Amino acid sequence: MDQYEELIRIKKMLKLNNSDLGSLIGKSGDTFRKAMNRKSLTDHDLKALVKSIASMNLHNNEDERLAIENLLKDIRKKVRKNRSDIVHKILSEEDESKLKDVLRNDPEYRDLFIKDDETKDVPVNQPLEIFQTKNGSQYEELANGKYVLTVPLVPVRAQARYVYEFTDAEYIEGLTKVSFIVDRVGVGVYRAFEIQNDSMDDDSKRSITSGSYVCGRELSKHHWKDKLRINHYNDWIIVHQDTILCKQIIDHDVEKGIITCHSLNTSPEYQDFEINLNEVKQLFNIISVQNMRV
């Protein structure tokens, strides 16, 4: 059974459809179906897809977990073999040896030199692979199964400018970068924002304290016409027409296009308020927080 046949078997086993799997690698259900039929997914897409399935813990028993784990291991073997084959084809034995000496300590090529049974010995903070998404986010795969996601940071001092220049690719590229540990490779636009007040600090574990960095995944505007998934995503970054807010969204009137914003801090100065989505430029659901210790 080849990797595509095994992936189809796992898809049926977990009761997933083409849209479910396609969304994990930024493809529509129909595009994913065609790629599966043609067996034309790239090694990177296959690896990212199975890695995402594994991180979502969708298995119902040990056999299903092992099936996913073994498929991921097979894909990693294939990736390493393909890279090695390319090296053999284009270099003489002497040149190949010299190149390997140069690349051996480069994190981006480390998995080329790791044997199947050595992965467990790689330090958890040592990347197995580094790759860039089409939206500009960088991922480093770690040996513990997680990823380091590096994204542009919008600090407090830059937020007034960001409101007006968030569509300028050159401006975004020039922003400082910051990294977060995440469970899987995501699809979409990611940004980090610095928090500038204590409106989301209620002294609980869910607090987002002043000075913290949060990482958010953008929710495209065409999704705003549907009910926001406010029960699934608790905390949001709202890029308003003249400011940037970090709030919970506790209600969404789809017909009127109005959201109700809520602060965790119960101080009287942080009352709930409404915003018309016509005044909003971007929405990000927060996926990771680096809280500033106080």
Rank of each mutant, 00 (worst) to 15 (best):
L7K: 08
K15P: 10
S19D: 11
S23N: 12
K27M: 14
K27D: 06
K27L: 15
K34Q: 15
N37D: 11
S40T: 07
L41E: 10
H44A: 13
L46S: 01
A48D: 13
V50S: 14
K51W: 15
E64Q: 14
A67G: 01
I68D: 09
I68K: 05
V79F: 02
K81D: 13
I86G: 06
I86P: 00
V87F: 12
E94L: 10
K98I: 12
K100S: 11
V102E: 08
R104P: 04
K115P: 03
D116P: 14
E118Q: 13
D121A: 07
V124H: 13
V124T: 09
N125Q: 05
F131V: 09
F131S: 09
Q132G: 03
N135S: 09
G136F: 00
Q138C: 12
Y147R: 08
T150V: 04
T150G: 05
L153W: 06
A160V: 04
F166L: 01
D168C: 00
Y171T: 06
G174I: 00
R184K: 12
R184V: 06
G186P: 00
G186I: 00
G188V: 01
R191A: 07
A192F: 02
N197P: 05
N197Q: 08
S199D: 05
T209Q: 02
G211N: 03
S212D: 09
C215K: 00
C215M: 02
G216V: 03
G216D: 03
Y233T: 04
V239F: 10
D242T: 01
D242V: 00
I250P: 07
D251V: 03
H252N: 15
E255W: 02
I258H: 12
I259S: 08
P268H: 05
P268Y: 06
P268T: 04
E269G: 03
Y270H: 14
E274T: 14
E279F: 07
Q282N: 11
I286M: 12
I286L: 10
I287Q: 13
I287R: 08
S288K: 11
V289Y: 02
